[in-house]
Design a protein around this nucleic acid. Structure first.
Ligand code: FES
Ligand code: FES
Lengths: 141, 141
DNA sequence: TGATACTTGACTATTTTAGTCGGGTTTATA
DNA sequence: TATAAACCCGACTAAAATAGTCAAGTATCA
């Protein structure tokens, strides 16, 4: 059960972006250098973030990205959703009537994993980008 | 972020085992048939469970496995630990001073993932095998 | 008219997962 | 005592997912 780099990087990059919450857009090159994330990979990630309207792009020289909403309104859930970092605990198709291995009923542990999934999602639901930035206010990179 | 089959199967199999909490050992063949899990795979899993003293084996004809502790005392944590289903949210070596990409400090999100890891482990710490069996008492397979 | 930076799609090496396979050993019971 | 049921154990592998790279653009500012 592990978090993938895509999700981790997405959050890292957005926290970085939110800290430089100025009028000027932040370029991926800067984020790449500061956070040590491959530029090409960041581009993939921001492509998705833009499609979900979490960030806005500013093209051209001196361009970059800015947040499209207030940091307070961006929850971890939104970020993870945007980059397809899903929490998946069950094996069966969640909404189908069928169980794990194509069985006709749900398996013995289905409810448990469902609970777990909710438990994890609660965490993501509660944390906003603003919270994360605040927690890092005193620290320097 | 997903749960692997190994962990899922380990719990499924133990719930099955605990339900037939009789004097007679339960054979992996039976569990395999009831739960639709490959027998060979189950053997791998139970080898680990035995090494961590969660189950005991009874060899020979009519043999099988029995719980080695009371169902109440077996937490999800113990099961996951036994089968090496670890929760891993950070990228860095957890106890090293170094950060994600060999950087000298922890990254912006390190604390967040640490919190998440604790949040998830809390869940596993609270659930015992007994709880799971109880929740399934009325249901039939 | 550069240079900078975003845009997009395709491709790939590596790692992990979810098993399979094959050959044991032990023990109850007919 | 033979035999079959069941555990024991190591090695191997196909498929999927991950974590990127690469290449070829397009837009805009200075
Ligand atoms: S996880 Fe849904 S039926 Fe097994
Ligand atoms: S996750 Fe620990 S430093 Fe990035």
């Amino acid at each position: 059960m592990k978090l993938t780099s895509k999700g981790r990087y997405a959050v890292m990059a957005l926290v970085d972006l939110a800290r430089f919450n100025s009028i000027n857009p932040v370029s991926l090159r800067d984020i790449s250098l500061r956070q040590g994330i491959s530029l090409d990979y960041l581009e993939q990630i921001f492509f998705k973030l833009r499609k979900k309207e979490i960030v806005q792009s500013v093209r051209g020289n001196q361009g970059g990205y800015v947040l499209n909403k207030k940091a307070k309104e961006i929850k971890l859930t939104n970020i993870f959703d945007a980059v397809d970092e899903k929490v998946k605990t069950v094996q069966c198709k969640k909404d189908s009537k069928k169980g794990c291995n194509g069985k006709s009923t749900k398996c013995l542990t289905h409810n448990l994993w469902d609970e777990l999934e909710n438990h994890i999602n609660d965490f993501f639901e509660k944390k906003s980008l603003e919270d994360l930035v605040k927690e890092n206010t005193e620290r320097r990179i």
